[in-house]
Design a protein around this nucleic acid. Structure first.
Length: 702
DNA sequence: AAAAAAC
């Protein structure tokens, strides 16, 4: 049956919203409004509530129509307001209902079903059968719909409907639809569905709850984004208040395991060791002991150096064993984007599990009910984006009064102008004596305000200089002509392997992604203007390889980890040096290799050089044109095909939140043939009809 | 200055 993607909807479920003034005197919205007012008169759009309200309140179209449209249906003779009363009719007797013979049902011959020969299915003429199409001749029922239809649109005359020419619609040739070849869909092959053979029926005796250990059927074929899965199995709340009595054997830990030496719980160390994580990164070695000791910590470690575990492990250790009341979580990790929240959640979940710490993702774009329910049952640790958490606090669904540990991931970003009010709102709700951990790759003086207000005797650990010190990363700065930007971007992105292209604006992301696809490079846009369902889908496709090029705004600049991103292209230069470092940090993670290419227009050159210096990036600006040797070197020589390609999944219908059927997340890489034309297609804007896609010279900067 | 973050 059709899958209903309830999850893609914005949570519109009825949510009662008693506003608890307990935590603050102003609501978040009021605060923001006040802030906006303080910032001066808005030059942007003005909400036109008045106009809308007037139209609604007055003689609306709806009520108007209710009277006019159905005036004839009125059973009484009261004059309709606004209409001239009809002249009394004299040409016939007033109808006496009972006397009207034609209303006797049984005598109406044409409704005798058995007399209608053409309802015999087998004998109905087929489409294209002209014998049936005597133009204009009515059948005995007085209608002739099929005649004209067939005359005009005889299917056999329409070449484009010839089934044989549409390979993609030929069911037999679509390999992925061959049921017998999809082992993961065969029930018999799924070992854990053999009821009789399941050794453990007693839930408490199940030796392990760990996700990773469970035999899996292949979920990749499941075509659900991680976001949808996440919402479906709400394991964290299910687990609530169940404490494992006996330690589970998680494997042995080597005597020289250095995590153990840091003072972490043995179970945690064992769990890490099972994933092959036995030696801590420098940032972890530096911060974990202090964090475990309950100190406030400022942690700075280069991108991809394991900061998540740096604050995650001590947080879990300290929360373990405690008791959490309903709606009163004891730990809170704030992150700047929803994707990052999901990533942190997923990274900590197995670890939280062995520690019997429950955790819940609290982020916008996801349905409210499960988040509220989870909080009601009591959840130890929240991983949250600020807006939704404030919302839930205002509703009374969450109470931060019991938060023992508050973590700010990407702390410097959380302290910039846009985020600061929300973050202080949340921190204000937490007890002043609670522990605070601030982490970022670029932890600088921007956090001073927060540090002074909310941290007590913080310990600062900087394992790196806060500059570009990832030695496995190479930087290139290409000074280009504006007219070459599109083709150079396409050349760079057409390489094998994953590439992220950063642009400045949401619109730019959409535009560049489209341009790349027009040139034959499979690319998808990621930015905050998309529905959350689409954001998840796009990131999933980037991760599974079906879309190797991600065109993103700075929503993806921080924290997001995808394996093997070999190249970061900055099609628009970053706004400041910290952004450079974070964008660049999407590649060369955890010791891997990677390159960063920044496209610089002549007028941006000076600023870019300054920025590079602040970032500690050593790169000489080099003039470059499409086809240059340097570009070829960076891309391994592959060129864009020039033939437009289409995304493997239907594009998001922004207005239709359902999402619909999705194909493609399991479709291999760039295998799409890229021909245009057939199939039901969403059109998301005007389709290009001009032939010169490439040499227009329109630059998408600016 | 844009993006992000609630509905």
């Amino acid at each position: 049956m059709t899958q209903h993607h309830h999850d893609d909807r914005p949570a519109d479920a009825p949510v009662k919203k008693p506003r608890h003034k307990k935590f603050q005197t102003q609501s978040y919205g009021e605060r923001m409004a006040a802030q906006a007012e303080a910032a001066g008169p808005s030059t942007g759009e003005v909400r036109d509530d008045t106009a809308r309200g007037e139209r609604r309140g007055g003689p609306s179209q709806y009520s108007d129509r209710g009277v006019r449209g159905y005036a004839n249906d009125r059973r009484d003779n009261r004059p309709v307001k606004g209409y001239r009363a009809a002249e009394p009719r004299t040409d016939r007797r007033p109808a006496n209902r009972d006397d009207r013979p034609q209303y006797n049902r049984d005598e109406r011959p044409q409704y005798n079903r058995d007399d209608r020969p053409q309802y015999n299915r087998d004998e109905r003429p087929q489409y294209g059968d002209r014998a049936r199409t005597d133009r204009g001749e009515r059948n005995q029922y007085g209608d002739r719909p099929q005649n004209n239809r067939n005359d005009r649109n005889d299917r056999n005359d329409r070449p484009q409907y010839d089934r044989g020419d549409r390979p993609s619609f030929n069911r037999d040739e679509r390999p992925q639809y061959d049921r017998t070849e999809r082992p993961q869909y065969r029930r018999d092959d799924r070992p854990r569905f053999e009821r009789d053979e399941r050794p453990r029926v007693d839930r408490d005796e199940r030796p392990r709850f760990d996700r990773d250990e469970r035999p899996r059927y292949d979920r990749a074929g499941d075509r659900q984004s991680s976001y949808q899965r996440r919402d479906r199995d709400d394991r964290s709340s299910y687990q609530q208040n169940k404490r494992v009595e006996e330690p589970v054997d998680l494997g042995t830990v080597a005597a020289d395991n250095q995590f153990a030496a840091l003072g972490l719980a043995p179970r945690l160390v064992q769990r890490l060791a099972r994933d092959g994580i036995t030696s801590p990164f420098p940032i972890q070695t530096a911060t974990i002991p202090d964090a475990l000791a309950g100190k406030d910590v400022l942690g700075r470690g280069q991108t991809g150096s394991g900061k998540t575990l740096g604050f995650g492990l001590p947080t879990l250790t300290r929360l373990a064993g405690g008791k959490t009341e309903s709606r009163r979580p004891r730990g809170m990790i704030l992150v700047p984007t929803r994707e990052l929240a999901m990533q942190v959640h997923d990274a900590l979940e197995p670890l939280a599990h062995v520690m019997n710490v429950s955790l819940k993702l609290i982020a916008g774009g996801l349905p409210y009910p499960k988040q509220i329910e989870s909080l009601r049952r009591g959840v130890d640790l929240l991983i949250a984006t600020p807006g939704r958490l404030i919302d839930l606090c205002e509703q009374g669904a969450a109470d931060l009064g019991a938060v023992e540990i508050a973590v700010l991931d990407e702390a410097d970003h959380m302290c910039d102008m846009g985020f600061m009010p929300a973050v202080t709102t949340l921190l204000d709700m937490t007890p002043a004596e609670g522990q605070r951990l601030l982490f970022s790759a670029t932890l600088d003086n921007d956090v001073d305000t927060i540090v002074k207000t909310y941290l007590k005797d913080p310990v600062q650990h900087s394992t790196e200089s806060g500059q570009a010190s990832v030695s496995t990363m190479e930087h290139h700065m290409l000074v280009i002509e504006p007219g070459h930007k599109q083709s150079l971007t396409a050349e760079l992105a057409s390489r094998d392997g994953r590439t992220i292209v950063f642009v400045r604006t949401k619109l730019g992301a959409d535009r560049v992604a489209t341009q790349l696809r027009d040139r034959g490079v499979m690319a998808a846009a990621l930015h905050g203007g998309l529905t959350q369902g689409m954001r998840n889908r796009t990131l999933d496709q980037f991760k599974d390889g079906s879309v190797p090029v991600l065109v993103a705004t700075d929503v993806a600049a921080r924290g997001i980890h995808v394996d093997d991103v070999g190249l970061v292209v900055q099609a628009d230069p970053p706004a400041e040096h910290k952004d450079y470092l974070h964008r660049a940090g999407r590649t060369a993670r955890a010791g891997g290799k990677g390159a960063v290419v920044t496209l610089v227009l002549p007028h941006q050159r000076r600023g870019m050089m300054r920025m590079a210096e602040s970032a500690g990036v050593k790169a000489e600006p080099v003039r470059a044109r499409p086809g240059d040797e340097l570009v070829t070197e960076l891309t391994g020589g592959s060129k864009p095909s020039g033939y437009p390609v289409k995304l493997p999944a239907p594009k998001p219908q922004r207005f239709n939140k359902g999402g619909g059927k999705r194909f493609g997340s399991s479709r291999p890489g760039r295998g799409h043939d890229g021909r245009g034309g057939s199939g039901p297609r969403r059109s998301n804007g005007p389709r290009r009809t001009d032939g010169n896609r490439y040499e227009g010279g329109k630059s998408y900067q600016h």
